[in-house]
């Protein structure tokens, strides 16, 4: 299996001397094409930093990050921007949509920014997948939180990106809306052949992925193929012994 994105010996250091913090400390990982990878770990484990660096939103202190065969270090801001626009899709925890644009305009935004119009059939198909056909001309403020995240997923897929990076996409949603969004990401990977990388601290969310990576203290400490919520929760509890990890209690997480 080829990698849609990969980091090799990735290190990210903030500050220096006494106050030095190693957010990433020699992480090497491949995100396989047409795979759905979840990244988990306690707060401060470096999972968000890993995703930001892999996605070209942040730069590594040392090591290498690639999207496909493009090495990210050494790219100018403009080249990174274009790369994000052309080859990456993003879903953030909240504030994913531009309030002045309609649902449809938000979905096609990256395409419109590139100046090359989106493929209308593909957009049409996406709209049906996320089930927002009757909301196309609404503004984000007229949608529920779950609907907004579904629009964000559609936007992330609109340009047929190499990888979709999702940063806590369900963090602000109730469990039903969250399940819908995760279902969409799963379909994108398994039915449309996209690649997805998701940072989460919700074991239920992580269970939607093909594989879960566990980070602690800036290092890759474990991998779990074909995860289930229970196994992920158990693995996370091991971290809780050392440091306060996931914010949610098991009761909240349960199915």
């Amino acid at each position: 299996m080829t990698a849609a994105a990969r980091v090799v010996d990735a290190a990210k250091v903030y500050g220096s001397g006494e106050t030095e913090v190693r957010a990433l400390d020699g992480v090497s990982v491949d995100f396989p094409a047409a795979g759905f990878t979840a990244i988990m770990g306690p707060s401060g484990s470096g999972k968000s930093t890993l995703m930001h660096c892999a996605a070209g939103l942040d730069t590594l202190t040392s090591g290498s990050a690639r999207i496909g065969d493009v090495e990210l270090s050494g790219l100018t801001d403009k080249q990174l921007t274009v790369l994000r626009r052309e080859r990456i899709g993003f879903v953030f925890q909240s504030f994913n949509l531009v309030p002045t644009l309609t649902v449809r305009e938000n979905i096609t935004l990256p395409r419109d920014l590139s100046g090359r119009p989106a493929d209308p059939e593909w957009i049409d198909a996406l709209v049906d997948v996320v089930g927002l056909r009757d909301r196309l001309h609404h503004r984000p403020s007229e949608l529920s939180g779950g609907q907004q995240q579904r629009v964000a997923v559609a936007r992330a897929l609109a340009g047929r990106p190499d990888v979709v990076f999702a940063d806590e996409p369900t963090g602000n949603l109730d469990s039903r809306s969250g399940a819908e969004v995760l279902g969409l990401l799963g379909r994108a990977v398994h039915e449309m052949g996209r690649t997805a990388v998701m940072v989460t601290h919700d074991p239920v969310a992580a269970a939607h992925a093909d594989e879960v990576l566990f980070l602690a203290d800036g290092r890759l400490v474990d991998r779990m193929p074909e995860p289930t919520a229970e196994r992920v929760l158990d693995r996370m509890k091991a971290f809780d012994g050392r440091a306060p990890g996931a914010r949610r209690t098991p009761q909240e997480v349960g199915p």
Binding site: K78, F95, V98, P110, L113
Partner: peptide, 16 residues
């Protein structure tokens, strides 16, 4: 600020 950050993340260049 957040909106501008989002626009940049999804591919708006600085000059845009």
């Amino acid at each position: 600020t957040r909106e501008l950050g989002l626009l940049r993340a999804v591919g708006q260049t600085r000059s845009q």
